[in-house]
Simulated assay, not measured.
Amino acid sequence: MELESELIDWTVYTETRSALGPDFVRILGYFREDGTQSVAKIEAAMRERDAAKMVIPAHTLKGEAAQFGAVKLSSAAETIELTARKYVEYHQSPEELLEPIVALRPMFEETLADLDRESSPVIQRQANGFGRRASGF
């Protein structure tokens, strides 16, 4: 049974998993690495108040998240990207993006946790206690 989540469109996830076949886990690993870097670059750009430096990592995160059905993360990245582009065009500081950017990392981490749980049922079973040694023996 698939996980229920407002973060993930499980139909898109299933289609991607099917299309990628045995490469799925490797590509998911790339998403983890690229996404971590994108989030860090967006946060750094916010600290610098540099909207131009937000655009590419937000665009990258948006596309990669959408590929895995991570709709909420993709939407948040799109909002950051489009708003940052507006600020670049009008030569304004991206103060309005502080709250969405602060929320981005926890959302990314929660999204990864959902994807990991769904893509690795063995890990999920071990986390639930299967395969553990009984204590006291």
Rank of each mutant, 00 (worst) to 15 (best):
K62Y: 03
I80C: 01
S75I: 13
E48T: 12
K41L: 07
Q37M: 05
S93L: 09
G63E: 07
F130M: 13
S120T: 04
P22T: 13
A66D: 05
E89N: 14
D50K: 15
T79P: 01
R105L: 12
A51V: 06
E2H: 02
S38C: 07
R47Q: 07
R132G: 04
I27L: 13
E81M: 07
F108Q: 13
R47F: 05
V102Y: 03
L7Y: 10
L115H: 02
A40T: 04
V55A: 03
A65V: 13
K62D: 01
T11H: 03
I42G: 00
I8T: 06
Y30Q: 15
L20W: 01
L61C: 15
A19H: 02
R133E: 09
S18C: 10
P22G: 05
P94R: 13
G136Q: 03
L61I: 05
D23L: 10
E6C: 11
G35V: 01
S75D: 15
D116S: 05
R49Y: 02
K62F: 02
T11V: 13
E33H: 02
P100I: 10
D23Q: 11
G21F: 01
E2M: 06
R132P: 02
S75N: 14
A103T: 07
A45C: 05
F130E: 15
I123Q: 08
A134L: 09
K62W: 00
M46D: 02
R49H: 04
V39D: 09
L82S: 12
V122E: 15
E99S: 12
A76S: 07
A19L: 11
P106E: 14
E95D: 14
E6L: 11
Y90M: 13
A77I: 10
Y87E: 14
E6T: 10
L82Q: 14
T36N: 09
E89F: 09
R32F: 00
V71C: 02
A40G: 01
S120I: 12
T36L: 06
A51C: 04
G29Q: 11
L97H: 01
S18Q: 07
E43D: 06
M107T: 07
Q126V: 10
I80D: 01
S93K: 15
E15R: 12
S18M: 12
E48G: 04
Y90V: 03
R26P: 00
A76H: 03
A113K: 10
S5M: 08
R17M: 06
A51S: 15
P100K: 11
L28K: 12
P106T: 12
A134H: 04
E2V: 14
F130V: 14
M54A: 06
L98G: 07
A51K: 13
S119Y: 04
A70L: 04
R47Y: 03
T11G: 05
F108W: 03
A65C: 10
G29I: 13
L20V: 00
I123C: 02
I80H: 00
E64C: 05
G21K: 10
I123T: 13
E43I: 09
R133L: 15
S18Y: 00
Q92P: 07
V88F: 10
P22S: 11
I27R: 13
V88M: 12
D23F: 05
S5E: 09
